[in-house]
Amino acid sequence: MNEIIIDVKNVSIRFGQNKVIDDISFQVERGDFIGLAGPNGAGKTTLAKAILCLLPLESGTITLFGQHGARFNYFSKIGYLPQKNSNLNSIFPASVEEVVSLGLLAAKKIPKVITKSDQSKVRKTLGELGILKLKNKMLSELSGGQQQRVLLARALVSEPELLVFDEPSTALDPASRNNFFRLIRTLNRKKGITIILITHDTGYIGNYANKLLYIDRRLVYFGEISAFCKPKKGGHFFEKTDNHIIWHQHN
């Protein structure tokens, strides 16, 4: 068994009267590629944000890289790619180079300064993702696929050990989506980066992830995708179409 880097124990989260996560427990091992799936309103993004220490818990604990969530400060070990453009301001005059530099802040202390060597790291990461020529462009001038790569570069530039993606393929066409998923599979297999990827596409994720975390406010399934794909396993949880898609995509 690999090292446990995320330990979620009996976590519940409530927004006002609404309990959005109810007593969920699971563990993520180093090197896992986990597809986090579930229907609309199942609490996928909420759970991911709780793992990233962005939300307070009603009860339970989350331990990240051996640190309790509330006291977590190894921020340079995590990279986050939010849902495309969800928070981006289109008139913000930020160049691609400046945006990617933000990924390096986690490892810095006040006063934070972006040095020459940081700039080299930024350019190296942009080069690896094939978007170095965009470094002086404004983020809002780019296409959806290019923006996604820039935000991926921001998540990767600090060389994190854990990457959390929130529905990264929403705005991508099928070809860009395939490229994007192949890229993150390479990161997982060659660099050993642990990945949690939120998706609606339970079928597609079967091609890439080794584990599936399926929630619907409560934990429905957590384990190997191969085991999940057997019709008997969890068959009563899902619509037939879901099982069908996962089964074929996985093959």
Binding site: F75, P82, F92, V99, A106, I110, K112
Partner: peptide
């Protein structure tokens, strides 16, 4: 840089 990051994308800034 903290002002820039929090202005550009507050949620992402928290994760760093």
């Amino acid at each position: 840089w903290d002002l820039f990051s929090a202005t550009f994308d507050e949620e992402y800034a928290k994760t760093t």
